[in-house]
């Protein structure tokens, strides 16, 4: 509320937390990793609750961030709350490290927390992602932070929060199956292709965020901790390591994932999720890995093998 008549730049000392002692690099005038320590504690408390009730959405007092809502503010707040000076951060969007928003978020943390960043999945301790799970299996010492636009898996079936809350509380999920039933009745199979609803730990139905269903099986009993942040919708939820994550399906119409008969045009992978690239205006197409790191690793390995053989 200060009114500075001389229009000076606000001069605020950094708070406690990691910034204490001034040993850390960060943005002048801001706390380590942007958020103040009180907010970080609030978010960490929410995370603990989320881990204790796998798949259950916990409301939290989401802050306005310097990036717009819908652009990963939930994930950014979680990352800001858990990241320490020794962490190595990887940020991907659509599987790639070099997409504009991934670049922007990575540089935000470099600027405000001065942490090391990487594009290598294996080297990262914290991976913030939008819409993909890395192809390379994650380990126990890694944390995967998802950016979530709509945390409520029931939203397009029942828009009202009050009603959704009751459905979750009573595990009264019949209406979710009505939607699946309609899909199968109309198209012969389940039409949901991304953000495929899952049951976590046999209890809560959860949105896995808009990852393609190709990635859904990777969540099942993943060794890494999975944290989900929805900034605009003000919800946090989690899947602890080695927790059951099962996609909703019918006994006789099982869940299935996308497959390509083509391989990646760059690395030749057939088991990765592929992006389609339009190469000309007469229907030319190429397929390349959406996970830029997995693609690069595979190419590097191929090059090594080749030189080793010769």
């Amino acid at each position: 509320m200060s009114r500075t008549p001389g229009l000076t730049v606000p001069n605020r000392s950094t708070e406690g937390g990691y910034a204490r002692g001034g040993a850390l690099k960060g943005l002048p005038g801001y706390n380590f990793a942007f958020l103040d320590e009180v907010t970080k504690r609030m978010i960490r408390r929410t995370l603990l609750k989320a881990v204790a009730i796998p798949g259950h959405q916990i409301p939290f007092a989401s802050r306005e961030m310097p990036l717009p809502y819908g652009w990963g503010t939930g994930g950014i707040q979680i990352t800001a709350s858990i990241i320490g000076p020794d962490d190595v951060l990887k940020v991907i969007d659509q599987g790639a490290d070099d997409t504009t928003n991934a670049v922007s978020i990575r540089s935000f943390f470099r600027k405000t927390a001065g942490v090391a960043t990487t594009t290598r999945t294996g080297e990262a301790t914290v991976i913030q992602t939008r819409h993909r799970i890395p192809e390379q299996p994650l380990r126990e010492d890694q944390i995967l932070v998802y950016q979530v636009p709509i945390p409520e898996p029931l939203r397009f079936i029942e828009p009202r929060e009050e009603e959704c809350g009751k459905v979750h509380a009573w595990a009264d999920y019949g209406i979710m199956y009505v939607k699946l039933y309609e899909d199968v009745a109309r198209t012969g199979r389940i039409a949901t292709t991304f953000d495929y609803p899952v049951v976590v730990n046999g209890r809560y139905v959860m949105s896995p965020s808009p990852i393609p269903k190709f990635d859904t099986p990777k969540m099942h009993r993943m060794p890494a901790l999975q944290l989900f942040g929805a900034g605009r919708e003000k919800r946090i939820y989690a899947v602890p390591p080695y927790t059951d994550v099962k996609p909703l399906d019918f006994e006789d119409v099982p869940f299935e994932i996308e497959r390509w008969s083509r391989c990646c045009a760059l690395c030749g992978a057939t088991e990765h999720y592929l992006d389609e690239i339009v190469t000309d205006d007469v229907g030319g197409r190429r397929f390349v890995c959406s996970d830029s790191d997995a693609c690069a690793q595979r190419r590097a390995k191929a090059a090594r093998d080749l030189s080793g053989n010769s």
């Binding site: 009264d172 999920y173 019949g174 209406i175 199956y177 009505v178 039933y181 199968v184 019918f250 006994e251 006789d252 119409v253």
Partner: peptide, 12 residues
Amino acid sequence: GERLMAEGMRHY
């Protein structure tokens, strides 16, 4: 089918 699904029937 809605009530049956709510009651746990999972066979299409």
